[in-house]
């Protein structure tokens, strides 16, 4: 579904991605972990073209993301992304936030998109908040709306960029539950997170990034039981000790 081949990226003089190779199958859940600044968020943003790459190739669903002939707007309809800071549109109601994509981008009729949105709101458990504005919701609710907004486009792939890092601890589980549900429905997902519990349960494979490279990639079980890379071992010791 997603193929990343020898991807390099620079920010000015800073070499942030140093030759990433990655294959993600349809229906697979891949969790990216690593210290902050290791390049995992950047990699995620490259996958839907929010950041440009200077070398290599990223193919999603047989479309080459960084080829100039590719219609990025078209590709992005297939790739949903959920940000750390929600990034809901503050001047629109929850309903409008969810329907704006289907109506304006996919040109689905307003009634039909509204039905989709009502379904999604029911699913994320806050049907009564449809006419609220984002800043009237809790952080957990906002993030669930952001997930619904992405799902409303019926994407083939969902990317999550530290979706729970900006949340109060008591709200993390409501978001993670929703993500687990998605995973069990065989949605292809790439998740950057620090939630090791989620990684262990929901991930098919876990990739550990360090210094702009993938240091280790392994099925979840094996990754935690006997990590091969020295840096991975130290990282796991640190996060599991807390």
């Amino acid at each position: 579904m997603i193929a990343v081949q020898d991807v390099h990226k620079w920010f000015g003089l800073l070499h942030v991605l140093k030759g990433i190779d990655l294959e993600i199958a349809q229906g697979e859940v891949l969790v990216l972990i690593g210290a902050s600044g290791s390049g995992k968020s950047t990699l995620l943003r490259c996958i839907n073209g929010l950041e440009k790459i200077q070398h290599g190739k990223i193919v999603v669903d047989e479309m080459d993301i960084h080829k100039s002939r590719t219609n990025l707007n078209k590709v992005r309809q297939e790739i949903g992304i959920v940000f750390q800071s929600f990034n809901l549109f503050p001047h629109m109601t929850v309903m409008k936030n969810i329907t704006i994509g289907p109506t304006k981008v996919k040109r689905i009729s307003p009634q039909e998109s509204k039905e989709i949105a009502v379904q999604l709101l029911k699913r994320i458990g806050i049907p009564e908040k449809a006419d609220f504005y984002p800043d009237q919701l809790s952080g957990g609710q906002q993030q669930r709306v952001a997930i619904a907004r992405a799902l409303a486009m019926k994407p083939k792939v969902m990317l999550f960029d530290e979706p729970t890092s900006a949340l109060d601890p008591e709200m993390i589980s409501e978001v993670l539950d929703l993500m687990r549900e998605l995973a069990s429905e065989k949605m292809t997902m790439v998740v950057v997170t620090h939630e090791m519990g989620f990684a262990r349960e929901a991930a098919n494979r876990i990739a550990f990034m360090a210094d702009g490279q993938i240091a280790e990639i392994a099925p979840a079980e094996e990754f935690f039981k006997n990590p091969k890379d020295e840096r991975t071992r130290r990282f796991i010791e640190k996060v599991l000790a807390v």
Partner: peptide, 13 residues
């Protein structure tokens, strides 16, 4: 690969 190492001061100039 070498072509990218040129992102140096002279590149910025």
């Amino acid at each position: 690969m070498i072509r990218f190492e040129k992102r140096s001061k002279s590149y910025l100039f």
